[in-house]
């Protein structure tokens, strides 16, 4: 049997969850023996060329590009996992969710005291992704199959979850593994 294929992406996240994957230390060597990484910032593969077994999503959806990426992952991954608080509930970026997007943009690019008066404009290049009205948890946009909470989820949780997913076994969550901070 060929090795299970994993893809990862960071949407509106800080890459902390990806860092946590690296935190499994030397077990990453075991992991590489066990699985094949496909589209992921870890190996810099940018496009899907095959269907993956597991997709790991860090970050929620804060702009149109995040939505596109997430939908692409959903299409190309058999099992899709929300990894970390931002993917699960929007996290830090979602602190803007109670504020109208217009006010956010104006505060960030026009009124904020640290903005250079010469640069006072809201970015509007058509190439730029469009900001959403709020940050959406991934499972409100596409179907998500599993959730790994934490900020970031501990290396231990990620390791156990990956092993469980790859081996198709139920995930045994001990008390110390489920943490939101």
């Amino acid at each position: 049997m060929s090795k299970p294929i994993i893809a990862t992406a960071s949407l509106a996240g800080c890459f902390g969850c990806h860092m946590s994957v690296l935190d499994i230390d030397d077990r990453i060597l075991t992991l590489i023996d066990l699985v094949e990484f496909h589209k992921s910032p870890i190996d810099d593969i940018k496009t899907f060329s095959k269907i993956c077994d597991v997709g790991l999503i860090e970050g929620g959806c804060c702009n149109s590009e995040n939505v596109e990426t997430l939908r692409e992952f959903r299409k190309n991954c058999k099992v899709l996992v929300s990894v970390g608080e931002c993917a699960i509930m929007g996290g830090l970026p979602a602190m803007r969710n109670g504020i109208p997007v217009k006010d956010c943009l104006e505060e960030a690019y026009l009124h904020c005291p640290t903005v250079d008066p010469a640069d006072r404009m809201i970015p509007n290049d058509p190439e730029l992704p469009i900001i959403l009205d709020k940050v959406y948890p991934c499972h409100e946009v596409v179907k998500i199959d599993a959730f790994l909470p934490g900020c970031p989820p501990s290396a231990e949780l990620i390791w156990k979850a990956l092993v469980a997913l790859v081996e198709g076994k139920p995930l045994d969550l001990t008390y110390d593994l489920v943490k939101f901070d």
Binding site: K102, L132, Y136, V142, K143
Partner: peptide, 29 residues
Amino acid sequence: DFVTEFDLKAAVHAASGVTGQKLTEAHHE
């Protein structure tokens, strides 16, 4: 068993109004 309530067009409406950006074809599924 899963239908999303998420509507990309509606979700970008507010920002589009501020920046004038439009969803391109690529944004649609």
